[in-house]
C-alpha cells in the first residue's frame, strides 16, 4: 500500500546509487525590508538523505528553509534572489506555482500546529485540496498510511474524529508530520521540530525521521548538535547569513575545516 501511494507521484526511475541532489541552491540571497539575512547561500540537498542545518540563533537557518517552499512570500518586505533548482526548474522563479511547489515540499514547524479540526480532517486536508483521493476509501487509505508512517496510527486509530488539538505535544508534532507526508511530498522541511518536546517524544521523532528518509528527502533545522549528529547524513553550518561549511555529518562533527564551525560544535559560541 505504501508503495502504490508513492508510485502515483514519483517516477521510480531515477533512484541510482549516486547521491543525486534533490535540490540545489545557488547564490540565494534574502533580505527583510532591506536588511539582508542570507548572503549567497549555495547548497546541494541530496535525495533521500537527511540534511541538518545548524548554526547560532538568527543566522538564517529558518530563512533558508522557508526559501525552499517559498513561505517567505507571505512575509511583507522579504526579497529573495538566486536560484534553487528542483527537477530542473528554478523554484524561486516568480512564475513558479507555489501551491504545486508546497505539495512537493512539505513543512513541519517548530511548534506543533494542527488545525483545530479532527485528527482525520487534519490529515485529509492536504490530499483533499490537491485532489489526491478519488473517493472516501482512498482518502481513508491515505490517512491510515500517513498516520502509520508517522508512528501515530496505533495511538489514534480509535479517535480519528476527536480534535487534533487534544493530543499531547509529541503526538501533535507527529500528527503534523503525518499531515505533511499525506500529500506525498518529495521533500519534508522541519524547523526545530523537537524544540517543544520532551526527550522521549524527541527520541520518537528522531526514529521517525530515520524511517522517513527512505521515502523522503529531509531538511531539518536543529539547535541540538547530538540530534544533528544522530539523524543527519549531511550538515550545513550557517553563520551570520553565510554557509560556512557543508559536508558529511561525520566529517563536520569530527574534523571541521573552518574554525567557526569548530567553535560552534564544541560549544565555544552560539
Amino acid at each position: 500500500m505504501l508503495d502504490t501511494l508513492k508510485a502515483t507521484t514519483l517516477p521510480s526511475t531515477e533512484v541510482t546509487g549516486l547521491p543525486t541532489p534533490m535540490l540545489s541552491a545557488h547564490d540565494v540571497c534574502v533580505s527583510y525590508s532591506g536588511k539582508q539575512a542570507l548572503f549567497d547561500v549555495s547548497l546541494d540537498i541530496p535525495q533521500n538523505e537527511v540534511t541538518a542545518l545548524i548554526g547560532p540563533s538568527g543566522c538564517g537557518k529558518s530563512t533558508f528553509l522557508r526559501c525552499i517552499n517559498r513561505m517567505n512570500d507571505v512575509i511583507d518586505g522579504c526579497v529573495t534572489s538566486g536560484t534553487i533548482l528542483m527537477d530542473g526548474r528554478n523554484i524561486l522563479e516568480p512564475s513558479e506555482d507555489v501551491v504545486q511547489l508546497r505539495q512537493k515540499v512539505g513543512m513541519v514547524f517548530q511548534k506543533p500546529n494542527p488545525f483545530p479540526k479532527s485528527i482525520f480532517e487534519n490529515i485529509a486536508y492536504g490530499p483533499r485540496i490537491h485532489g489526491l483521493a478519488n473517493d472516501k476509501t482512498e482518502l481513508d487509505g491515505i490517512v491510515e498510511v500517513s498516520l502509520e508512517r508517522a508512528g501515530l496510527w496505533k495511538e489514534v486509530k480509535d479517535r480519528l474524529n476527536q480534535p487534533g488539538t487534544g493530543l499531547s505535544g509529541g503526538q501533535q508534532q507527529r500528527l503534523c508530520i503525518a499531515r505533511a507526508i499525506a500529500v506525498s511530498p518529495d521533500v519534508v522541511l522541519m524547523d526545530e521540530p523537537c524544540s517543544a518536546l520532551d526527550p522521549i517524544a524527541t527520541a520518537r521523532i528522531e526514529e521517525l525521521i530515520d524511517e522517513l528518509r527512505e521515502k523522503f528527502t529531509i531538511v531539518i533545522v536543529t539547535h541540538s548538535m547530538q540530534q544533528a549528529a544522530r539523524v543527519s547524513t549531511q550538515t550545513a553550518f550557517f553563520h551570520m547569513g553565510y554557509v560556512v561549511e557543508v559536508g558529511a555529518t561525520e566529517k563536520i562533527f569530527t574534523n571541521p575545516e573552518d574554525p567557526r564551525t569548530n567553535g560552534y560544535i564544541t560549544g565555544r559560541f552560539g
Binding site: V74, V99, G106, F109, N113, P116, Y125, G126, I129, H130
Partner: peptide
C-alpha cells in the same frame, strides 16, 4: 493564530483556501 495560516499555506493551500477553510471559520 498565525500558526494556523502557516500550517495551511505550508500544506499548499492557496491564500483564498487558507482564509475560507481555516481563518474565516475560526
Amino acid at each position: 493564530p498565525p500558526s494556523i495560516r502557516q500550517a495551511a499555506l505550508g500544506m499548499g493551500a492557496s491564500r483564498l483556501q487558507t482564509v475560507t477553510h481555516h481563518v474565516l471559520p475560526l
